[in-house]
Amino acid sequence: MAARLLNANVKAVMESNGSEAEPSVGFWCELGTMQEDEPVPASFDSEYPTEV
């Protein structure tokens, strides 16, 4: 849920500035320990928009 909230805020800030959200910028969560060799997701879900 934290990643979805952070992504919603990034999207809201970009839209409030008149910009389109950059699909390659975002937050995600993974199970377990971070692995440097795992690929970055192609898109980042944003839900539960919050006030900026």
Rank of each mutant, 00 (worst) to 15 (best):
M1A: 08
M1C: 04
M1P: 05
A2F: 05
A2M: 07
A3I: 01
R4Q: 07
R4I: 02
R4W: 03
L5N: 12
L5Y: 09
L6M: 15
N7I: 00
N7Y: 00
N7W: 00
A8G: 12
V10P: 01
V10W: 03
K11Q: 15
A12K: 08
V13W: 04
V13A: 14
M14V: 10
E15D: 11
E15R: 13
E15P: 01
S16K: 13
G18L: 01
S19N: 15
S19F: 11
S19K: 15
S19L: 15
E20S: 06
A21E: 10
E22Y: 02
E22F: 01
P23A: 12
S24R: 06
S24Y: 02
V25G: 04
G26Q: 02
F27D: 00
F27R: 00
F27A: 01
W28Q: 06
W28G: 03
W28F: 04
E30H: 06
L31D: 15
L31C: 07
L31Y: 08
G32M: 06
G32E: 07
G32F: 05
T33L: 10
M34V: 07
M34C: 05
Q35M: 12
Q35L: 14
D37M: 13
E38H: 07
E38F: 03
E38V: 08
V40L: 13
V40G: 09
P41E: 12
A42V: 14
A42T: 15
F44G: 04
F44I: 01
F44W: 00
D45F: 03
D45P: 07
D45T: 04
S46T: 03
S46M: 02
S46I: 00
E47S: 10
T50K: 09
V52R: 04
V52K: 05
V52I: 08
